[in-house]
Amino acid sequence: MSSKNEKSKFSKTAFIEAEANNNSRNLLQVLLKEDKTYTQDEVAKLVMDWNKKEVKG
């Protein structure tokens, strides 16, 4: 049994197929690794950090 402090982890595929991620599916394809699982907070941080990157050009 998991404790209340443990957050559920999901696969890359689960995040990409989730209805809530319709607008960021392409970004999740790039950011998430196939062989790793993530919490919702971890994915949110990855997306936020990516969006803060300076555009080079």
Rank of each mutant, 00 (worst) to 15 (best):
A44H: 08
K36R: 07
F15C: 03
E54Q: 14
E34Q: 13
A18K: 06
V43K: 00
L46V: 01
V30P: 05
L46T: 02
V47R: 01
K12D: 00
A14S: 08
Q29K: 15
K7Q: 07
K9P: 00
K45A: 08
I16Q: 05
E17R: 07
L28N: 04
D35T: 04
R25N: 10
S3K: 01
T13W: 00
N51H: 14
A14N: 04
N26I: 11
M48D: 14
L28G: 03
V47W: 00
A44Q: 08
W50I: 11
N51I: 15
M48R: 13
L46E: 05
L46H: 01
A44F: 09
L28E: 03
F10K: 04
N5D: 09
N21W: 10
K53V: 09
K4Q: 11
W50N: 14
S8V: 08
N26C: 12
V43P: 03
E42A: 08
N51R: 13
N5F: 12
T37P: 05
L28T: 06
N21R: 11
V30I: 15
L28H: 01
L32P: 01
T39K: 02
S3W: 06
K7F: 03
L28V: 07
V43H: 00
K9I: 05
E17A: 06
M48V: 10
K52E: 08
L27V: 12
K45V: 05
K53G: 10
E42D: 00
A20M: 14
K9C: 04
K53E: 12
K45S: 14
V55E: 12
M48T: 14
T39V: 04
V30G: 11
E34N: 15
L27F: 05
S11N: 06
K45Q: 11
K4P: 01
S2I: 07
N26P: 09
V55A: 09
